[in-house]
Amino acid sequence: MEKKTQLEVAGNAALVVVDVQKGFEDPFWGRRNNPEAEANIAALLDAWQGTGRPVVFVRHDSPAGSRSPLRVGHEGNDFKDFVEERRGKGAGPEVLVTKSVNSAFYGEPGLDGWLKGAGVRQIVIAGIQTNMCNETTARMGGNLGYDVLFPLDAMHTFDLAGPFGWTATADELTRATAVSLHGGRFARVVTTEDVVAAAR
């Protein structure tokens, strides 16, 4: 049996909380998975803010004139209450990054510059959606040289239809993301429990 290696979380590792917005509660998206996602995201936020580590809050701003539940000026653009209540409460540095594409690295202010300015080399990604903005941010983070931790139980996604009549459930998409990121060495797929334990 393979021995489990102890997870290490850097003293200045940044928690990147992606798109935890009210608009993702809209039936528009379909069936979701992982009902424990929000509790695990909250646990990560509490651990990060309690230890003074940096937190990045990422918000997806869809165009105001679109039909997206995440559009600017619509209540769905707001962070979910448990995230909004924690903003500004940490002992460490915090930043709000707004974006209109999948990767948090293509937002304002520039995430890569902010992280490098703070000397951060390790990031932990949590939020919504697993196989969309979270995966895209993780891939780009890995390409930019960051040590990326991806706590799979601190995120969720939705069932999805693709080409050729193919469909995939939220759980199938989650597994595919985990295998691609971990197997491809873009990120290390881990659990919230292990990350929180290592952070404390």
Score class of each variant (00 low, 15 high):
41 I>E: 11
42 A>T: 07
44 L>G: 09
44 L>C: 12
46 D>E: 15
47 A>M: 11
47 A>D: 04
47 A>Y: 11
47 A>P: 10
49 Q>W: 02
49 Q>T: 11
49 Q>P: 00
50 G>Y: 01
50 G>Q: 04
51 T>Q: 09
52 G>T: 01
53 R>L: 01
53 R>G: 03
54 P>W: 12
54 P>S: 09
54 P>T: 09
54 P>D: 08
54 P>H: 12
56 V>Q: 02
56 V>A: 13
56 V>P: 06
58 V>A: 13
58 V>L: 12
58 V>H: 08
58 V>W: 11
59 R>M: 04
61 D>P: 00
61 D>Y: 14
61 D>K: 05
62 S>E: 15
62 S>P: 00
64 A>G: 05
64 A>I: 14
65 G>Q: 13
67 R>T: 05
68 S>V: 13
68 S>W: 09
69 P>E: 10
69 P>S: 10
70 L>P: 10
71 R>W: 01
73 G>L: 02
74 H>V: 08
75 E>P: 03
75 E>Q: 06
75 E>R: 11
76 G>C: 02
76 G>R: 01
76 G>F: 07
76 G>I: 02
77 N>D: 00
78 D>G: 07
79 F>N: 03
80 K>T: 10
81 D>L: 15
81 D>A: 15
82 F>Q: 01
84 E>L: 14
84 E>Y: 07
85 E>A: 15
86 R>D: 03
87 R>A: 00
87 R>V: 05
88 G>F: 05
89 K>Q: 15
89 K>E: 14
90 G>D: 00
90 G>Y: 02
90 G>R: 02
91 A>L: 13
91 A>N: 07
92 G>D: 10
92 G>S: 13
94 E>I: 02
94 E>R: 09
96 L>T: 03
96 L>Q: 05
97 V>F: 06
97 V>L: 05
98 T>W: 06
98 T>E: 15
98 T>L: 11
99 K>V: 10
99 K>W: 06
100 S>R: 13
101 V>Y: 11
101 V>W: 09
102 N>K: 14
102 N>M: 14
102 N>S: 14
103 S>Q: 08
103 S>C: 03
104 A>G: 15
105 F>I: 13
105 F>T: 12
105 F>S: 09
106 Y>P: 00
106 Y>C: 09
106 Y>M: 14
108 E>I: 13
109 P>S: 11
109 P>L: 14
110 G>M: 10
111 L>S: 08
111 L>M: 11
111 L>R: 02
112 D>H: 15
112 D>K: 15
114 W>K: 09
114 W>D: 07
115 L>C: 04
115 L>G: 05
116 K>V: 09
116 K>D: 00
117 G>P: 08
117 G>C: 06
118 A>V: 03
118 A>T: 08
120 V>G: 08
121 R>L: 03
121 R>W: 00
121 R>H: 10
122 Q>K: 12
123 I>N: 05
123 I>Q: 03
124 V>I: 14
129 Q>L: 12
130 T>G: 00
